[in-house]
């Protein structure tokens, strides 16, 4: 397929499918709790509604207040485009794109934090501090997970890295990356996406002052990030790329669905952690990824 067709198709896949993921998670949570729950397409409706609204802007804020969410959204979408998609492979891939992925996600976080502090609210500053201090630990985990995959495949291109051999390392990697996924996307043991209680919010605090299209960009970017992490997790653990195309596509879709169901079950069955416990769990995730790296390194040499 030519680049001209491939790129728009991929873009459409990420942009259109991503808002489905939070809807699915909410349905699962509702099912476990015995409620009817919001419709599956709720986030699409929300995005359409927010897009039509006007922006309320503080007189103190600079244009960075609008620019931040836009930069974050673009960074997350570009990071998603870097990720190979099972049988379709990658379109923008180059050697070292794994690091580009990590730094694009970091750029997105920086832009969100910057926009949050634009209004000068001390409250949002607190949210930024929490988000960034947890991100330090989560980022170390992602880096060591990617390093483990790199050592395993002797490559730094995501296309070759995400063709793992299944073993002990994959189990460690799966547990570590799933925990990081929960932390990075502000899911339950770390942060509650539904809460609006001042003392416990992390991510939600940062977006309190946003409205209209910028808020839509933030919400949509968050859903793309969630889908990105699920796809990354599935491809890092299951040998998707080695299978024939239809089976690989089915395995990828099934794996992502499994991850989504897992998130829904975790959110329903586990209470959120006390703040002091969060670094402990994140350190555990980091160690899981580090030991996956150790297994990859020892297995490669021995």
């Amino acid at each position: 397929m030519s680049l001209l067709w491939d790129l728009p198709l991929r873009l459409a896949f990420w942009l259109l499918l991503a808002p489905l993921v939070p809807g699915l998670i909410n349905r699962i949570k509702a099912w476990v709790a015995g409620r009817r729950g919001p419709p599956l397409l709720q986030l699409y409706y929300d995005l359409a509604r927010l897009w039509r609204k006007q922006v309320v802007m503080s007189s103190l804020a600079s244009p960075g207040f609008i620019l931040g969410p836009a930069v974050a959204w673009v960074a997350v979408v570009v990071a998603a485009l870097l990720l190979p998609l099972g049988p379709a492979g990658t379109v923008l891939g180059f050697s070292g794109d794994a690091l580009a992925l990590v730094y694009l996600l970091a750029l997105a976080r920086f832009a969100t934090a910057w926009a949050a502090m634009e209004t000068g609210s001390a409250f949002e500053g607190m949210g930024v501090v929490r988000e960034v201090s947890f991100a330090v630990l989560a980022e170390g985990s992602i880096l060591s997970a990617l390093l483990a995959l790199g050592v395993q495949s002797h490559s730094l291109a995501l296309n070759q890295m995400l063709a793992p051999t299944v073993g002990t390392g994959s189990a460690l990697l799966a547990a570590g990356l799933f925990t990081v996924l929960l932390a990075e996307n502000c899911r339950v043991p770390f942060d509650d996406p539904n809460t609006h209680l001042e003392l416990t919010m992390i991510h939600e605090v940062m977006v309190l002052d946003h409205s209209g299209p910028p808020l839509a960009a933030i919400l949509h970017g968050a859903s793309v990030k969630l889908l990105l992490f699920s796809v990354l997790l599935v491809q890092a653990v299951l040998p998707v790329a080695n299978l024939p195309a239809p089976a690989a596509a089915a395995l990828l879709a099934g794996g992502v669905l499994g991850v989504v169901v897992g998130i829904g079950l975790v959110e329903s069955l586990i209470a959120r952690l006390a703040f002091r416990k969060v670094p402990l769990l994140l350190t555990t995730a980091f160690l899981l990824c580090l030991f996956a790296l150790l297994v990859a390194w020892k297995g490669g040499a021995g």
């Binding site: 402990l280 350190t283 580090l290 030991f291 150790l294």
Partner: peptide, 16 residues
């Protein structure tokens, strides 16, 4: 807990 966990992990890697 976090420092002792990190110490233990570092020790395990060093032992290997």
């Amino acid at each position: 807990f976090v420092p002792s966990l990190l110490l233990g992990a570092g020790g395990t890697i060093a032992a290997v």
